[in-house]
Write a protein that binds this DNA or RNA. Structure first.
Length: 511
DNA sequence: CTAGACGTTGCAGGC
DNA sequence: CGCCTGCAACGTCTA
């Protein structure tokens, strides 16, 4: 039987290595490529900021253009997804819906609801995995039903499974010709909306542009330097280089503009040709496996994105402080290194992994003692590569709530950045007000004399003292026991002279 | 049961 | 500058 199929794009905004799309083409007499833009669903399940909307719309536009080149089109249908599916299944006599399987609870619920509609309206649902390297269920089974909680153990399980499945072939114009495209005229009704249609600011200054084409181009650029690929060592990359010192491909993986399996095998081929290559956890392939690690743990942990009711998460009495949270989010902590990071995040939607560490440590265990859940929400809104599992997992890591427990190892908001960028070029780029500040003081401008501040054209304020305070914080461990732990706290006693200054630090932050 | 090993990427200081 | 050690030390897992 030849199906009349809707292929539903959710993530997986690509043509290459798209198993569900390929299955649709191979089993159908007509395929409707559809993206449902359900704003109510999206705002209720995720916090998507303007930059992420831009990236999504650009990705859809690119997908539309690629499908057109193959003789098809993309139909972007706005509305509540259940009624959109119901209406169009009936209108187009649909017998099959294909989609990529996803692991987030809200996407799983969506698939279950679509399956429910399928039973009611008489269409089949085919969901195939395309977003991760492995079927995480298999990993759980091999680990005795629970997720491995260390990377080493995770790798041991993967060695039992062997390499991931190889990518499926690219769909061709012939594939699309064999089944009819949607009726003429439909594509015009269901175009990709403009940012202004969605009441999103029209301009984005992010250097990242969404879409499979852009993602593939960036991927090829990086893979061309085989020596760099083979020797890649994550902790040695520079968090504050003016251009990304890592691949910067993460936004394309999180939206599925790029396939992790294709990337995995491209890396394997390069490693095979190299004399020596780095290994997980620090290698490029190791980075893909970290992604897989967090997917696996998230898939089997209740309340993974929360502290309460999350069995792997330390229960800590974080401070509730909306004002300091807001200052952190809007780059007003007073520490140029932290504020530059938050500025890059807000302007570009991407920051280096170690910069994320510095900012996350500052918000949680390092300085402000504010819950990782708050930071997670901010990153979810602002990061183009925001990913349900990876975001929550890393926030637990950085706040020493799970996976990592050395909470006395604090990233210093002054010295950590200075190690790799002593001149403070990164700070000068993202905080232009400090552009002419002497390098000596740029990570702690309040230590410059008033005269020196005047010469640099920027009055920051003055402080005689930068304190390193050792506090005792009460935390509750997994077994409900309360205990006191040391908490290193950096802060400055800084008075703000100019209300127009973007910097100010409340002192002391913890009392 | 306990002791010891272990954990992707801290910091300071020495060479 | 890169690499080393010592520091002080957590929770979790395992022998």
């Amino acid at each position: 039987m030849r199906h009349r199929t809707i292929h539903l794009f959710r993530k997986g905004l690509r043509l290459h290595d798209n198993p569900a799309l390929l299955a649709a083409l191979q089993s159908s007499e007509v395929v409707y490529p559809v993206y449902i833009l359900d704003r109510a669903f999206m705002t209720s399940s995720m916090h998507i900021g303007a930059l992420r909307w831009h990236f999504l719309l650009q990705s859809l536009e690119d997908l539309r253009s690629s499908l057109r080149q193959l003789g098809s089109c993309l139909l972007v249908i706005q509305g509540e997804y259940k009624s959109v599916v119901r209406d169009h299944v009936q209108k187009w006599n649909i017998t099959q819906v294909t989609l990529g399987a996803e692991m987030e609870p809200f996407y799983k619920e969506m698939e279950a609801n679509i399956r429910g509609l399928g039973e009611e309206l008489g269409f089949q649902v085919l969901s195939l995995m395309g977003h991760s390297l492995y079927n995480t269920q298999r990993i759980l089974e091999l680990n005795g039903g629970t997720p491995p909680l260390t990377y080493k153990r995770f790798l041991r399980i993967l060695s039992l499974l062997g390499d991931p499945e190889v990518p499926v072939r690219n769909p061709t114009a012939e594939d699309f010709q064999r089944c009819s495209p949607p009726e003429l005229g439909l594509a015009e009704c269901y175009g990709v909306p403009l940012p202004t249609d969605l009441k999103i600011p029209p301009e984005s200054i992010s250097p990242w542009r969404g879409g499979e084409s852009e993602g593939l181009q960036r991927l090829e650029q990086h893979l061309a330097d085989q020596g760099w690929v083979a020797s890649f060592t994550k902790p040695k990359t520079v968090p504050n280089s003016l251009l990304p010192s890592t691949t910067g491909l993460s936004p394309y993986f999180s939206t599925g503009c790029l396939s992790v399996r294709s990337f995995f095998y491209r890396l394997s081929n390069i490693y095979a040709q190299a004399k020596h290559h780095s290994l997980p956890p620090v290698s490029l392939q190791g980075q893909l496996l970290w992604r897989e690690f967090f997917y696996t743990v998230a898939s089997a942990t209740p309340n993974f994105t929360k502290m309460a009711g999350n069995p792997i998460c330390l229960q800590i009495r974080w401070y509730e402080d909306a004002e300091r949270l807001h200052k952190w989010k809007t780059a007003q902590t007073g520490f140029p290194w932290i504020d530059a990071i938050m500025t890059q995040l807000r302007q570009e939607g991407w920051i280096h992994h170690l910069a994320r560490h510095a900012a996350a440590c500052f918000l949680t265990r390092g300085d402000l003692w504010i819950s990782w859940e708050e930071g997670m929400k901010v990153f979810e809104e602002l990061l183009l590569d925001a990913d349900y599992s990876i975001n929550a997992g890393n926030w637990m890591w950085l706040s020493a709530s799970a996976f990592f427990h050395h909470y006395t190892r604090i990233f210093c908001p002054v010295r950590f950045g200075r190690r790799t960028d002593p001149e403070g070029q990164y700070i000068r780029k993202y905080l232009p007000i400090l552009k002419n500040f002497p390098s000596k003081y740029i990570y702690e401008p309040w230590t410059a004399s008033e005269e020196e501040q005047k010469q640099a054209g920027c009055i920051i304020g003055s402080s005689d003292t930068v304190l390193r305070i050792l506090l005792l914080i009460t935390v509750k461990n997994n077994y409900g026991c309360e205990m006191e732990v040391p908490h290193f706290h950096h802060t400055s006693l800084l008075s703000v002279d100019s209300p127009s200054s973007p910097f100010f630090v409340n002192a002391p932050i913890l009392v």
